[in-house]
């Protein structure tokens, strides 16, 4: 039975293996026929190189490809936290115009509830 590896195109991290044919893929994915290759994804996030060799994905690749959902969620929270802190700092800057400070304060409250 044909087996297709669906990769995140940019990083070539394997998002899934499928025997569905043709494999349904998203715009940022590439389907590669891996029939006959011994691929076991249970060992962790995996990169399929252009020569069909396999290697473990780096944490950055796993994050960028979206396969590490927990890390992606943590990164979103980190980014939002940093943005909220930056807005708060700008809103408190006495060198900023009062109307801008008020706008930033309101924006921070609306966006982050802080």
């Amino acid at each position: 039975m044909p087996v297709t590896a669906v990769l995140h195109t940019e990083t070539r991290v394997v998002r899934r293996l499928t025997t569905d044919f043709p494999a349904l893929i998203a715009p940022d994915e590439t389907a590669v026929d891996v029939t006959g290759l011994d691929i076991n994804l249970s060992g962790g996030f995996t990169v399929l190189e252009l020569d069909n060799s396999l290697r473990p994905a780096s944490p950055e690749e796993a994050l960028e490809s979206g396969v590490d959902e927990a890390a992606a969620g943590a990164r979103r929270k980190t980014r939002h936290r940093a943005a909220s802190v930056a807005l708060g700092a700008a809103a408190a800057d006495p060198l900023s115009h009062t109307s801008l400070r008020e706008a930033l304060t309101k924006l921070r409250l609306a966006m982050y509830g802080e």
Binding site: V6, V14, R15, R16, L17, T18, T19, D20, L24, I25, A26, D28, E29, N40, L41, S42, G43, G44, T46, G66, V67, E69, A72
Partner: peptide, 30 residues
């Protein structure tokens, strides 16, 4: 998954004496 795409799927194969068999057509390894 977020792509959005189906990254894990299975279809029915049989009911067995102590359970059932399904065919996983898409897997993530998890």
């Amino acid at each position: 998954t977020t792509t959005p795409s189906v990254n894990m799927a299975a279809q029915f194969v049989s009911m067995d004496s102590d359970g059932f068999t399904v065919n996983f057509t898409s897997v993530t390894g998890v």
